Lab assay of single mutants.
Amino acid sequence: MSGNGNAAATAEENSPKMRVIRVGTRKSQLARIQTDSVVATLKASYPGLQFEIIAMSTTGDKILDTALSKIGEKSLFTKELEHALEKNEVDLVVHSLKDLPTVLPPGFTIGAICKRENPHDAVVFHPKFVGKTLETLPEKSVVGTSSLRRAAQLQRKFPHLEFRSIRGNLNTRLRKLDEQQEFSAIILATAGLQRMGWHNRVGQILHPEECMYAVGQGALGVEVRAKDQDILDLVGVLHDPETLLRCIAERAFLRHLEGGCSVPVAVHTAMKDGQLYLTGGVWSLDGSDSIQETMQATIHVPAQHEDGPEDDPQLVGITARNIPRGPQLAAQNLGISLANLLLSKGAKNILDVARQLNDAH
């Protein structure tokens, strides 16, 4: 009898209710805020589980004197976190989706994509230029951005401005803007500013005609071990179906173009009346040469937790077992079709030249 009692006690200790789920994140304040929001949602869904947040620095956090596009290494903000995932030191990792490459290392998958916040870019102005827009900034004003995508589009749109690289986390960039006289304004992701509670610093939100956004911008991705079915089931509740389908289309477009950090590629997606609209573009580094096109596809946005595919093969690095396969494939095909259209119009040449120029500098 006593033996059975011990077995029952052991089973209770090993039951999922007692389990601590370890969540990996970057150390920056924004990353911690984003991770806290994901953990809060998981806690609400699984009140019996405990969650421990483990923060670590990544290569991208450490190399702050070089433009991201020049470092010449993929997975700048993800490699150390993936290493911890691989060694079973954490069970899942919360990322900004735009930091996750469209091809993940073997053994990993994006197990959830959370509801997207505003994906557009924002302009934050130096205190002396508050009330201005990019259009009304004085001639030769210097605007800071760490992104080739932003610089290429904005140089084309605002030729009277000069664009220079600015690195560091959000706090560091804002301090550089406010305390030094080098920059009249800087460009940042609206979602990051909003998550930090800095709505009052948003001086201008850039519309798609001015600057399309990065693939996955404004959404959070939760990376897990691809074979860890328990954790895949656990994080599945975080999937937002519309965000998922938009981001599958965007990531398929980028992957098929073979774009990345070192080339200016941008997108804009919208879901309306059962249609998914995808606009994508590529630019030369100075913005003088560009190709942009829009395509659409009829896609039914499923309700969360309709029964999805059981075999769960990944699409552009994403596993969404609780979302039907048909809409996911339709979104992926839309991204591939748009990429093929741009490639047929000469996108590869623009991107190759951009890559060579970026590598040469």
Rank of each mutant, 00 (worst) to 15 (best):
Ala303Arg: 12
Ile350Trp: 15
Gln292Asn: 11
Lys128Arg: 08
Ile350Arg: 08
Glu52Met: 03
Met271Gln: 09
Lys62Ala: 11
Ala339Met: 01
Thr78Ala: 07
Leu334Met: 13
Glu139Lys: 14
Leu342Asp: 02
Arg195Asp: 00
Leu137Glu: 03
Leu97Ser: 06
Leu232Cys: 11
Ile53Ser: 08
Gln229Met: 12
Leu137Ala: 06
Asn340Cys: 01
His120Trp: 13
Phe77Met: 01
Leu100Val: 08
Ala252His: 01
Glu80Cys: 11
Cys114Leu: 10
Gly274Arg: 07
Ala152Asp: 04
Leu64Trp: 15
Asp289Thr: 14
Asp307Thr: 06
Ala330Asn: 13
Ser37Asp: 05
Arg225Asp: 07
Asn200Phe: 15
Glu293Gly: 14
Leu244Asn: 05
Thr298Ser: 12
Ser165Pro: 14
His305Cys: 14
Leu220Glu: 03
Val38Thr: 12
Tyr46Asn: 14
Lys74His: 11
Leu76Ser: 11
Arg251Glu: 04
Arg225Ser: 08
Gly274Asn: 00
Leu351His: 11
Lys87Ile: 13
Leu244Lys: 00
Ser146His: 06
Arg355Ala: 04
Thr66Pro: 10
Arg156Gln: 12
Gln217Ala: 06
Ser337Ile: 08
Thr190Leu: 13
Lys348Met: 05
Asn169Val: 12
Leu104Gln: 08
Thr59Pro: 11
Asp65Pro: 09
Pro324Arg: 13
Asn358Asp: 00
Pro302Thr: 14
Ser284Leu: 01
Glu179Gln: 12
Ser96Gln: 00
Ser344Cys: 10
Glu242Ile: 03
Ala40Glu: 09
Leu81Met: 08
Ser69Asn: 12
Ser37Trp: 13
Thr269Gly: 02
Leu154Thr: 08
Thr243Glu: 05
Leu357Trp: 00
Lys128Leu: 12
Leu154Gln: 06
Arg175Asn: 11
Gln181Asp: 08
Leu42Ser: 01
Val263Gln: 15
Leu244Cys: 13
Gly168Asp: 01
Met295His: 03
Arg116Cys: 07
Leu97Asp: 01
Arg175Trp: 10
Gly236Asp: 15
Gln356Lys: 07
Leu170Asp: 01
Gln153Asp: 01
Glu209Gln: 15
Val103Ser: 11
Gln181Ser: 10
Thr294Leu: 08
Val235His: 02
Asp359Lys: 04
Gly192Cys: 11
Pro241Ala: 06
Lys79Tyr: 12
Gln328Ser: 15
Thr294Ile: 13
Arg167Val: 09
Met56Thr: 13
Lys43Val: 15
Ser284Gly: 12
Arg195Trp: 05
Phe51Glu: 04
His83Gly: 10
Glu310Ala: 13
Arg150His: 05
Glu306Gly: 08
Gly48Val: 10
Pro106Gly: 10
Pro101Phe: 06
Ala354Val: 07
Leu104Asn: 03
Lys157Asp: 08
Pro101Lys: 00
Gly274Val: 12
Pro138Gly: 08
Asn200Lys: 14
Glu258Phe: 06
Arg167Lys: 06
Glu209Ala: 02
Glu80Gln: 10
Ile113Gln: 05
Lys79Thr: 09
Gln328Pro: 11
Thr133Gly: 06
Lys348Gln: 09
Ala152Glu: 05
Leu170Cys: 08
Asp289Ile: 15
Gln292Tyr: 06
Thr243Ala: 04
Ala354Tyr: 00
Ser337Pro: 03
Lys74Phe: 08
Ile350Met: 06
Arg116Ile: 02
Leu315Trp: 10
Pro101Glu: 08
Asp121Thr: 02
Tyr277Val: 04
Ile71Gly: 09
Pro324Gln: 09
His256Trp: 14
Leu234Phe: 08
Leu351Trp: 05
Glu117Phe: 12
Asp352Ala: 12
Gly48Cys: 11
Thr172Arg: 10
Thr78Trp: 04
Ser69Lys: 14
Pro119Tyr: 09
Lys272Cys: 06
Thr319Asp: 07
Ile54Pro: 02
